[in-house]
Amino acid sequence: MAEPMGFYTDTTVCIGCKACEVACKEWNQLPSTNGGLNTLSGDSYDNTRRLDGIHWRHVKFIEQFTDDRKDGRWLLMSDVCKHCVNAPCLEVCPTGAIIRTEFDTVVIQSDTCNGCRDCIAACPFGVIEVNPASGTAQKCTLCYDRLQGGMEPACSKACPTQSIQFGTIRDLRNRAQKRVEQLHQTGEKRAYLYGADEKMLGGLNSFYLLVDKPEVYGLPPDPKMPTRNLKSGSWFSVFGALAVGLMGIINFRNRGAGEHDQEERR
């Protein structure tokens, strides 16, 4: 297996140009929405709005303004599949369509997926959705085809500010740690890494440098594996069945002689 590969996204240098979104769409031949006509969100400069089956990259615009708009700030973050080491989508997929590649990335095989959508409910980041053209669940593949050809993914290649960096996870973590230290030295004490260690779902192979709480960026503070409820949920169901079975046995064995006699009298 090749060394684990992934993305490190430094949100502090993202300028919201959306070159990554365009590059992703071009390389992966993803359709435009609304037949190519503009669909404006109406309440934001961001008109993509979210990741889905035909938007595998999305630059989030977090626009924080006071009511009189005298004060405000922009947070920009290019969002993508996190390629979790312990991937919730891969865990629940009933068809085996979701696989881990030799680059330690997570890919949905579109020719195997049957569109059951269990992975959509399982992904704690809301990354996956159905591509209406294929009827299957789709998301970022970390450009698996480009990686196999020795190229870097289209989005990081297109990023003009190196907000999206591609490389081996080991190398990216070192780079990211240095960047956090640099930001701390220059006074930006809030800078920290999200998902860069094993604590979060075994590590996110696409991790982030953030300067505010994860929730502000629309990221879950504590994402978990779906199977956390499997054992307890199953046992409670068994208890439920035992209780129902017992109620059935008691009622059918000892059916209340009174009711029976009454019935016979009729």
Partner: peptide, 23 residues
Amino acid sequence: VLLAVTNRPIWSDTPLLGMLFVV
């Protein structure tokens, strides 16, 4: 149990849906 083994609000915030459905 299938609903509980996801990451959706409500469904995966209780382990009791399987029991509720059985009963």
